[in-house]
């Protein structure tokens, strides 16, 4: 294996390793997903009911 081969291999493998490590670090250190489905609406619009009354 010649020196150019070493350089290409190290740069290629190194770049991919850095990218995948960075991405996995970012993904795994994110806060847990919130359960939006369980959240109810903050306010209830009662204007139509009020008008009728």
């Amino acid at each position: 294996m010649n020196s150019a081969g070493w350089v290409v291999m190290i740069v290629s493998v190194g770049s991919v390793m850095c990218l995948v490590s960075y991405c996995l670090y970012r993904v795994l250190t994110l806060p847990a997903v919130e359960v939006h489905d369980l959240e109810g609406p903050l306010t209830i619009d009662t204007s139509r009911v009020a008008t009728k009354n």
């Binding site: 290629s12 493998v13 991919v16 390793m17 990218l19 995948v20 991405c23 996995l24 970012r26 993904v27």
Partner: peptide, 17 residues
């Protein structure tokens, strides 16, 4: 965005590394 990049980079890890 991050998820798409992560899955692509994982594929590259298997292929290149």
């Amino acid at each position: 965005v991050l998820s798409g990049l992560t899955s692509s980079s994982m594929n590259e890890f298997f292929e290149v590394c």
